[in-house]
Nucleic acid binder design. Sequence first.
DNA 1: TGCAGTGTTGCTTC
DNA 2: CGAAGCAACACTGC
Length: 343
Amino acid sequence: MVIFTKLKITTLPELPEVQTTVNGINKKLKGLRIVDIWTDYPARHYDNPQWQNSEKISSRQIKNKHFFNYFKKNIVGKKITGAERRAKNVLIHLSANKTPSKTTKGRCETILIHMKMTGHLLFGKYEKVNTKTKNLKPKTTKWVAQEPGPLRDDSFNQFIHLVFSLSNGKHLVLSDMRKFAKVLLIENFGLNTSSELSHLGPEPLTSNFSLKVLKERLNKKPNWPIKSALMDQTLISGIGNIYSDEILWASNIHPLRKVEDLKTSQFIKILVNTKLILKKGIDFKGDSMSDYRNIDGRRGRFQNEHQAYRRTGKPCTKKRCPGTIKRTGVRGRNAHFCSTHQK
DNA sequence: TGCAGTGTTGCTTC
DNA sequence: CGAAGCAACACTGC
């Protein structure tokens, strides 16, 4: 049994991690029917004043106590027809209503999951365990993987707050230590215009994501540091802290360099490296420096490929570069970079 | 013991 | 309008 060392940091699912999850769902869950749903996400999130004016966002979330029953009624009995990634969102498409009425005829819905910082989906055979009442604490329910292995033994896979029971006796569960994840139900015809997806920038791994598109998008924020622009989901979809650091390291560009000061040759480098590094992230099944796991509960390997991210103080690995990796703040985020070759 | 750090998103405040 | 700050939450290390 490998004992995983707990790391203090949390990395989060970016494009390659979400894609790895989606690929896993398409490989193993297509055609399965959802027979039940369980959650212990507290339904109190929207009591906070900051949410009171966000009905559009909160109304169809399972964390909204007024919506959960509708959510359950509308997904139980439906088949998972496939999964898709949009930016950092997992989209799980469901079959049409089994017994269509006038109002629901042919209507298809999609479960949208944003895993935020510490969420990841897992697939396996689980059982519900009621822990005994101890120390006057109320009885709590825990879901535990039945077989030994990473699903059961890796501590990062044990924060299960949402469970979809499936027709083959297995379960799709969401492990989400910090409970930031967002789960909601959207009717397909409104998917692209939904407040979750409509504002998102283009997908960097599509063939029509060209130099022209990249320049056009980034130039919307000419006075921003390039790192911030790369991470802005309204400009480009799917890039976060890890991959932006790696893209800029490979492109020899300083994270604080203003977009308006970039030359065309630098945009080309960003374009090439964005596609290359995101693809590499997918090839390595994502980044598991901290909590991300694929749906089998296993780690990806991209954390072994970092050249900049969280390598502060370590020598730069660029050929013939004598530099050291430094860390600096960029608009409230940490950037890791080599001060010698990144200009 | 307690608090800063972790890093996404979107709302609030200035 | 843009930015900075904060909250959602849990856990770790100093």
